[in-house]
Nucleic acid binder design. Structure first.
Lengths: 228, 228
DNA sequence: CGATGTATTGATGTGGATCAAAATAAGTGG
DNA sequence: CCACTTATTTTGATCCACATCAATACATCG
């Protein structure tokens, strides 16, 4: 009765497990509990006690946080193989941001004890976590850049291309994304209205096709070019 | 001829060396080369090949990066004990941001080989690096928050209090900071003019005292309160 | 069919950037 | 000590990208 027989978790490409031998991966995965999670489930909560680490196996999730005035800021989408909640691995008492499921899926969960044992036994995991952390820092540097010296149009365009790369589906007409205006607005830090106007402009110029809760990107990028 | 006899590097409180026994710290430090560095020296350059890791022993440094349109964005001040350039530790080919000295000081430098050996021998270093990385992520989350939903006044006030905590000197009149308007502007992401106007307002209300290249914070914080 | 969430469109407002010009301060060399 | 240069700061006038507000239209579903 191997793990592989029940779910194909060992097949997932994960940066976190990179450099481990197959039997080591098995050992790491064996220490986790598997759990189905539904859309909108919040796995980690910003400021909440960090007592678990997670790996997304199936489905989609994303990081977000809530501002003091109650707005929701979407940071980053997660795909299978990504880990989150590793505040625990870093010895941090509480989670930095919240993570929620955006489609039904499957996650692996390690508790405090498992994390301690694993990181002691496989230093490679620490190395991989550090490497992932540095990827996030890179993401943040570019987000910082975008916030400080890109226009609203540029930020929305960027979010669209990023989202297309992570959660886009290829369809005959282009790349299809399941996102609402509100989500785009939240990720690009603009208002609903600005997103609506920008998308309308792009649709008029044939760059995108809109429908409720969905956008199809035709050519990936003549989103810029300043005319309306 | 111990390291300690030449410079008191082992006395520096460093999160990076936390949890190591004294003789282990010695071993880690022994693998580094010590170097005096002058003000304005750029230690790591954004996008440049990451072939060294550093620890600041004496003096002040800071992270910054240059935007495509040539503006300089100041991110974070460094104090003795802080490490930087650990893109290397994370296996990242190039530095994420630049780091420059802002006062003369002293740094420890590890080359690629030393870093590889040390991280293999002392997994605790990886753990500490991960912990430091998560501190930076926390900083970035709050910076993101500030950029998206704080006013110019709030951001400048925040920068002032942060800077006061890291590079402030206590003087009878309050806390003295060596910063120019331009530096504050760059860190708070506002223009020189806005900084000037805000500081003037605060000085009129007796919260700060200004002189060229220097600010004295009297009471740490009635910087807010919306009136001019 | 109404009910509810999502998207559009126009009118108006505003925080802070941008531009222009001058004042102040600190250094430099005669 | 003064004339001269260069860096830093100030103050006012103007402008604009985008938020905000208000009203309406469209989709989807039970």
């Amino acid at each position: 009765m191997t793990i592989r027989s029940s779910v194909p978790t060992a097949d997932v490409e994960s940066l976190f497990l990179k450099g481990l031998a197959p039997h080591e991966r098995q050992a790491v995965i064996a220490k986790a509990t598997r759990r189905r999670v539904l859309t909108n489930t919040v796995m980690s909560r910003q400021g909440g006690p960090s007592d678990r680490a997670f790996m997304l196996v199936k489905g989609r999730a994303r990081f977000f946080f809530i501002t003091p005035d109650g707005r929701k800021i979407i940071l980053h989408w997660l795909v299978p193989g990504d880990i989150f909640g590793w505040a625990l691995l870093a010895g941090r008492p509480s989670y930095l941001v919240s993570a929620e499921m955006v489609h039904d899926g499957l996650v692996l969960t390690w508790d405090r004890i498992a994390v301690r044992e694993l990181s002691a036994q496989y230093p490679m995991l620490l190395h991989n976590a550090l490497s992932i952390a540095s990827d996030y820092l890179a993401w943040y540097v570019s987000a910082h850049l975008a916030l400080t010296c890109h226009t609203a149009r540029e930020r929305v365009a960027n979010v669209l291309t990023n989202v297309a790369q992570t959660i886009g589906r290829k369809v005959p007409a282009g790349v299809e994304l399941d996102v609402t205006n509100e989500e785009l607005a939240s990720a690009a830090n603009v208002t609903l209205f600005t997103v609506s106007r920008l998308l309308s402009g792009w649709q008029r110029r044939g760059v995108v096709v809109k429908s409720r809760g969905r956008v199809v990107l035709r050519s990936t990028m003549q989103l810029l070019s300043s005319e309306d």
